[in-house]
Write a protein that binds this DNA or RNA. Structure first.
Length: 284
DNA sequence: AATGAGGCCTGGTTGC
DNA sequence: TGCAACCAGGCCTCAT
């Protein structure tokens, strides 16, 4: 929805000027903020694409092949289309002004985990032209070209714990800590289950559950462009109310009534139902 | 090579 | 009331 909203507003528009208002936002553009701004001026946006938490604008040819401006949203980043006279956002990081003096493109990011950078487009293993830093990111479960069986095979090939594999964006993208906990709850699996003992059916179930959760979140929060605003906890208001596991410590499981437990995992909190999602008898 | 731990960041919340 | 400590998390770097 972010991608579609952006596409409607920026495709075929020519960039006039780019202001980097927080240098950290372009730290991954190794040539620096001046180069970042200079290389975008005069370019026309030809496409908007997404993979996982990455979003990029394809640009018209610069003479040395195709490139794109890549945005990573981190956990608090947003791409906003804003009227030129709108009061500036206090977390403004990059502002793009177009030659038509119409609505601007704002990259806004409270926690500055996200950022923007310019990269050539390269052919990815799974098909398509992608910015180089994104080439290793897998498709997400909602992508029409997502290959469920290949993703299950990828997870089962790993020698790790299930939740780690779900959070690894190279196999399947778009699953963060919240979606992982929700998908595991729906599939009745504990996150520390060893991937090599996962059955194909269990693998398909947890990925199908992840797709359901993403669908629900998108349907709830993605209807209008400004409504894609994601709050500090990474969940939209509606989605927050529809969580079954994440953040529900001590609340009764919606299936069996057992209080949801919280555990530390990968320096993060994980939530699960002790009864529906028993820990495997042995692990590691 | 593959896997895992730690760090980056800011603002809201919690605890003293 | 004021302040410090804590917490959130996507992904990059570094160690093993």
């Amino acid at each position: 929805m972010v991608r579609r909203g952006l596409a409607e507003h920026v495709i075929d528009r020519k960039i006039a000027e780019v202001a980097v208002e927080h240098p950290r936002a372009v730290r991954r553009h190794i040539e620096g903020d001046l180069d970042f701004a200079a290389r975008l001026a005069g370019r026309t946006v030809t496409g908007v694409r997404r993979r996982g938490k990455y979003l990029w604008l394809e640009l018209d040819e610069a003479g040395d092949g195709s490139d794109a401006v890549l945005a990573h949203l981190g956990m608090s980043g947003q791409m906003l289309v804003a009227a030129a006279d709108r009061p500036p956002n206090s977390h403004m990081r990059v502002r793009v002004r177009f030659a038509d003096d119409g609505p601007q493109l704002w990259f806004v990011d409270q926690r500055t985990f996200g950022g923007m950078s310019i990269h050539p487009l390269v052919a990815a293993a799974g098909g398509g032209l992608l910015p180089e830093p994104v080439a290793h990111i897998g498709r997400d479960p909602m992508d029409p070209a997502f290959d469920l069986d290949a993703a299950v095979a990828g997870i089962r090939r790993r020698r790790t714990e299930l939740k780690r594999a779900l959070l690894d964006q190279t196999i399947v993208s778009g699953i963060g800590n919240i979606y992982a906990d929700e998908a595991l709850w729906r599939a009745r699996l504990h996150g520390i289950r060893p991937t090599e003992k996962l059955t194909r059916a269990q693998g398909r179930a947890v990925l199908a559950a992840a797709a359901e959760v993403m669908d629900a979140a998108l349907a709830a929060g993605g209807t209008s462009f400004d409504a894609l605003y994601v709050n500090v906890n990474g969940a939209s208001g509606f989605f927050d109310r529809s969580l079954d596991a994440y953040g529900q410590e001590d609340r009764p499981c919606r299936r069996c009534g057992t209080p949801i437990r919280r555990e530390q995992f990968m320096n993060r909190s994980s939530y699960s139902c002790p009864r529906c999602q028993p820990r495997p008898r042995t692990h590691h």
